[in-house]
Amino acid sequence: MAKALIVGVGDGLSASLARRLANRGYDLVLAARDTDKLADLAAETGASTVACDASDPASVDGLFERVDAVDGPLAVAIYNPSARVRGPLVELAAEDVRRALEVTAFGAFLTAQRAAVRMLDAGAGTILFTGASAGVKGYAKSAPFAMGKFALRGLAQSMARELHPQGIHVGHIVIDGGIRNPGREEPADKPDSMLDPDRIAETYMQLVDQDRSVWSWEIEVRPWVETF
């Protein structure tokens, strides 16, 4: 049986992804800094959980040791974490910016590199990155998030050009808008203004299923009322 890894799991999009993959029969490994919050989701999906700091190489190596202990090839790897630091450019703390970049971009590299090694050995696999509109256009007072997401997008595009011809599908999903998560709903005066996590997860699965004759490296998703 094939296995799937999701890094940066919470109760929103990543939980929807876990349910979709479990329903497809994948053996799941779910990684997060705090795994206590994953108990219910793990019980529902039959997943293994691993505590992991995605920005730390040793921690990511430990994660993949746990992934390797699960039978079957690694077929899907999804990187979801990001870190935001907001504020005027001249007031940002350097260490906060460094940490944001480590989580959003460097952690993506660490996870993707290790996933790619395993998928290349098998000659197949899908690696997906959760992007944002900040990776396409930088917003005022949000420079660290834009820096991290631009780097993430560049990583995905470079990987796609290198790995697609070797049988590994790499995809970057630009999420343009807020996600409707538990406890976070649209304002009454702005119906349909947020993305449904289950519908986003369907888009990820379309990339997993996509025939290699038409592989997409990037897809944008946004609410139909969103301007862009």
Rank of each mutant, 00 (worst) to 15 (best):
A18N: 05
S16T: 00
L63K: 04
R118V: 04
F129D: 05
S55M: 02
E226M: 11
F129R: 05
L13M: 06
V9G: 02
A75M: 07
G148A: 10
A43P: 00
F150I: 01
R99I: 00
F64L: 03
S14P: 02
A2Q: 07
G138H: 04
A58H: 07
A116K: 04
D34C: 03
T203V: 15
R180M: 13
V103C: 08
L63M: 12
T111G: 11
L41I: 07
G12C: 08
D36V: 09
A151M: 07
A100G: 06
T111M: 10
D53V: 10
D68I: 02
D196W: 00
T227V: 13
A132I: 04
S216E: 15
H172F: 15
L21P: 09
R114I: 05
Y26L: 03
L74I: 02
A94K: 01
H169E: 04
R84A: 12
E91N: 14
D211G: 12
V136T: 10
A18F: 01
A132P: 02
A51V: 04
F145V: 03
F64N: 01
A47D: 06
L155E: 13
T45R: 01
K149Q: 15
P182F: 13
L74V: 04
N23L: 10
R66L: 01
T130M: 08
T126H: 15
F150W: 14
L17T: 01
V117W: 14
K3H: 01
A15R: 00
Q206G: 07
D56I: 06
K137Y: 13
I200N: 07
S213Q: 09
G10V: 05
A188R: 11
G148L: 08
R86G: 06
E65T: 15
N23R: 13
P187K: 11
E218K: 04
M147K: 00
V170A: 13
Y26Q: 03
E91D: 15
D211L: 06
A146Q: 07
A151E: 10
V90A: 13
G183H: 10
Q166S: 12
E102L: 14
G138T: 09
V97F: 13
K3L: 03
R222N: 08
V29A: 03
G107F: 11
C52P: 02
R84E: 14
G183M: 05
V221D: 15
T35W: 10
R33H: 12
W217H: 11
M205C: 12
V225W: 00
S48A: 14
M205T: 03
E44G: 00
I127K: 08
H172K: 02
A160F: 15
V50M: 05
D36T: 14
A69L: 05
D189E: 13
A124E: 15
I168S: 09
A43N: 10
A18T: 02
P88L: 14
A108D: 09
I127M: 14
A2H: 08
H169W: 11
K37D: 02
E91Y: 03
